[in-house]
């Protein structure tokens, strides 16, 4: 019994850590750079699908299935999402700040449409199954399997965290901060804000793709329904709860919000009669939406807190 609980705990934490990776990606874009991405779900989906196509065994009714190693899939997923992010960024970052938001929203709609309709590549509404899972040889022992996956995901989060902390302290990170504080001054020093913003947006997108790939391999199955706007929203809630601009907060926020989400979903399925569950789930989303607005209004620094207020973010930018 208690072993089951540990196995479940490992599963829960592993899932939470996949969200933590998305959150770290968003933190580079929003927390460090002030770029608003409404299409997180799209970049996560791109990572997940590209990795799945690269690593699944050859499938007759679907293009691809290249049977490559999982690591190649992760890398491919991250690169593909990074390229997509670069494209959207290159298109909009030089324009008004909210055009990027609108464009990423469009990407989310379009990617959702693509995974649904490009059936020969993505399996359409049925998604892709039999994605190789790390440590599959341990699958017979749920506890060992769960702990091994948790260790892998924790290692990924740790490596990313250290890399991002390092990046933030590097000259590159300092320029990014300088641009955020005072775009004109940074420009006067010969730094081209658009280039740095674009780099940050691309790296963030690639990290989201990596998160999608890792999550897909952990669950072993992906479908378009996993990448609806609600995913984007959850990741935002996580970053805001954690306090934007703070990598540790991003990880903590992911675990807290995923915990609340999983608990309330469990409560809904346990206490609400089946015919009312869709409604209760809707109410759950209402509460997250209201919660996000309340945090923006009342605790703009996030629950965990950060040195600087989000409200001063991007104040130096025009529009």
């Amino acid at each position: 019994m208690s072993l089951d609980l540990v196995a479940y705990g490992a599963f829960f934490l592993t899932m939470a850590l996949t969200y933590a990776v998305m959150c770290l990606g968003l933190n580079i874009q929003w927390g460090q750079t002030g770029l608003f991405n409404v299409g997180i779900a799209a970049f996560v989906a791109i990572g997940a699908y590209v990795s799945a196509i690269l690593t699944t065994p050859d499938t007759p009714d679907r293009l691809g299935g290249f049977d490559l190693p999982i690591a190649v899939g992760w890398l491919g997923g991250a690169c593909a999402a990074g390229v997509a992010a670069w494209f959207v960024g290159a298109l909009t970052i030089r324009l008004r700040s909210d055009y990027l938001a609108i464009a990423t929203f469009g990407v989310a709609v379009t990617v959702q449409l693509c995974v649904l309709n490009l059936q020969p590549l993505t399996g359409g509404p049925f998604g892709i199954g039999f994605i190789p899972r790390p440590f599959n040889s341990l699958a017979g022992d749920p506890l060992a399997f769960g702990l091994a996956n948790l260790a892998l995901m924790a290692a990924l989060v740790l490596v990313l965290y250290l890399a991002l902390q390092h990046l933030a302290k590097s000259p590159w990170g300092r320029v990014l901060r300088a641009i955020r504080e005072d775009e004109v001054a940074a420009q006067a020093l010969g730094k081209r804000p658009i280039r740095f913003r674009l780099q940050a947006f691309t790296i963030g997108g690639a990290i989201m793709g990596l998160a999608g790939a890792a999550q897909g391999h952990f669950i072993g199955f992906i479908a378009p329904d996993n990448y609806l706007p609600i995913l984007t929203f959850q990741v935002w809630a996580m970053l805001i709860v954690g306090g934007s601009g703070n990598n540790r907060g991003a990880i903590l926020g992911a675990i807290i919000v995923w915990g609340i989400w999983a608990l309330s979903a469990a409560a809904v399925s346990a206490f609400v009669p089946p015919e009312q569950q869709a409604r209760a789930a809707a109410l759950q989303i209402v509460m997250i939406g209201v919660g996000l607005c309340l945090i923006l209004l009342l605790r703009p620094r996030g629950l965990v807190g950060e040195r600087r207020s989000m409200l001063s973010l991007g104040r130096g930018r025009k529009s």
Binding site: S97, A282, V286, G289, V290, L292, L313, R315
Partner: peptide, 21 residues
């Protein structure tokens, strides 16, 4: 007097809440 993008974000939260309501 905050950044534009905070308003965009709030509208994003409001849209989700209104739609799910």
């Amino acid at each position: 007097g905050g950044a534009v993008i905070i308003l965009v974000m709030a509208s994003f939260g409001a849209s989700l809440a209104l739609r799910s309501l």
